[in-house]
Design a protein around this nucleic acid. Structure first.
Lengths: 329, 329
DNA sequence: TTGTAAGCGTTATCAC
DNA sequence: GTGATAACGCTTACAA
């Protein structure tokens, strides 16, 4: 027949233990306190099933031990893996994560950022396309894979090197007429760097190349390939695609027209996704260091102030041979 | 030269608008207030960039507009899709979601539940294996796909019907010696129902059947199949597998021994995962209604008290023909 | 070392 | 309809 059947508070613990309120607080904040007091408090807390109310604590300290994660989508192996790694890393640092899915929608991105900043997260890790970054206040914000114009800090793969590596690998494997493909579903910035690195390497090696851009979705792109082939414009022996998924579509289109991969055309993708079923790489690819990106992003957001704040952290990518190049499996 | 360069509070807005603190609160809670007052407040708020501090609000109201999501893993199409759907549904209801990944680890499950309940979420949606459900207090808890002994409410696919449908389909397609396969990586309860439904249908139709269980991981299971075949024990023309992934492994093993699917053996899986690359079903399967599960789970957790609280909500599954049965593509 | 009391930003209760 | 004022549960000087 206490007061209410509500959840216990520090006051209840203090009463149960016969100590002052402040003492209980100290125990839960690891501030030195008499050993006998500490024990009394801990027993009382356990007996009552007390847990600190982190909302009250957050209000007082302006610290919530929560980081917001903003992702465009989750039903894609790269994004889900990345999210999983971020969660694990946060957990290991005693943080938990909010999650918001934007469906690649700008308005949703802005709305999510508002929402989480209102929820007083201690920071934001976001993979976004074109958010409105005004009015965030001074909440630590780390962008993944997307560089913005302002002073927004970013953790990303080394896209430029990835492009270089892809080109040099194709050349090393004997290709002499190269093509770069990207589809329009990605944000300009990053794929441009992949392209730039690719072209840089081609030029340095005096290899002729071409670049292809289409604003079709990856799915519709097959028609573009078909018309290239049918009109005789297709004359390449090496292709670098901006994503593994795009590579898959193009490869299907080529196969439909009797062009063999890797015998006639060798292909390298970007992302490093392994097939869910076989757990093997589906193509030769430039692998993004997902775990490392997650780790560095979490570290960056948790130590936002104490860092010398580099505006861009590029993580090294690596080439992985697969069934779409002649060095592959 | 105000007080601090800190974030604006209701008090600041009240001062800026020249009204009382309580009036500002009313405006932000849609409580009727003089039209001219409302406008003054809204303008002041916009000017200052004010956002309500939901931690302070949460402390006062004991409502945080936050639901915790607990998942074993995210790098699996079913779990990531489910999580995505839950997030979308929460968002549409004005809630945001905490996320915790347990890595299928019991201790992590318990720890996560503690953590989120400490973070004062308004409820929990969890897909767990064997959590310690003590001391959660009275926080609304919805389990997905896992039925527990206690009064834990659960939203799940109709696993029993799924098993029946699979068996009846195989029989309809001409199979006369059936096999049920499950691997040990899943929790007992649910796959048992799939098995029970399957066996029930076999018995009703007087079709001989067998059931196979192995505590090997899905990956190691191929060896089990090999030894069955090599010792002559394998004599079936229809197999129902407890997951699509398991089906894939077994199918690979059969193929390696020259047994053709679906010509020699027809197979039906469970989950309804579509291949990321082709976006097509990889096998004939019993499809789980992912979106619906998410929607119902969110609805159940948000209306926890107002419901008549059924302890188990089973959602209908459906058969989808794929390349592993003779009616398939 | 321990206890006391003043807030943190909101909401809710009342007089006005 | 409006505006003081008392909580909410906790941290943190500061006083004992």
């Amino acid at each position: 027949m206490k007061k209410k059947s509500s959840v216990p508070t520090m006051k209840d613990v203090a009463a149960e233990a016969g100590v002052a309120l402040g003492t209980v607080s100290k125990v839960f904040n690891n501030i030195p306190v008499g050993e006998n007091y500490r024990i009394r408090v801990e027993e009382a807390a356990k007996k009552l099933g007390y847990q600190v109310n982190s909302y009250a604590r957050g209000m007082r300290t302006n610290k919530t031990n929560t980081i917001a994660i903003i992702m465009p989508i989750l039903s894609h192996p790269y994004f889900s893996k990345l999210t999983e790694c971020i969660c694990r890393e946060l957990d290991e640092n005693g943080y938990s994560g909010y999650i918001a899915i934007t469906d690649r929608n700008e308005q949703a991105e802005t709305r999510c950022i508002r929402m989480v900043s209102q929820h007083k997260a201690d920071g934001i890790i976001a993979l976004t396309y074109k958010p409105d970054l005004e009015n965030i206040g001074n909440i630590p914000f780390i962008s993944i894979d997307r560089t913005f114009s302002g002073s927004v800090r970013c953790v990303s793969s080394d896209n430029y090197s990835g492009g270089q590596i892809a080109a040099s690998k194709l050349i090393e494997l004997g290709c002499r007429k190269l093509l770069f493909c990207r589809s329009g579903s990605e944000v300009p910035g990053e794929t441009d760097k992949r392209k730039a690195g690719f072209e840089n390497c081609c030029q340095a090696n005096n290899i002729p190349y071409n670049s292809m851009f289409t604003d079709k979705t990856e799915h519709e792109i097959r028609d573009v390939i078909y018309s290239m082939i049918d009109s005789g414009e297709f004359d390449y022996d090496g292709i670098f695609c901006s994503t593994d998924k795009l590579l898959f579509e193009i490869r299907c289109a080529l196969n439909s027209r009797g062009i063999r991969v890797p015998e006639d055309v060798q292909m390298i993708g970007f992302d490093g996704i392994t097939d869910f079923w076989t757990e093997k790489p589906i193509c030769s690819t430039i692998v993004q260091p997902v775990e490392q990106i997650a780790r560095v992003a979490v570290h960056a957001v948790l130590n936002y102030d104490s860092e010398e704040s580099p505006s861009l952290i590029c993580l090294p990518v690596r080439y992985q041979a697969g069934p779409t190049t002649k060095d592959g499996i």
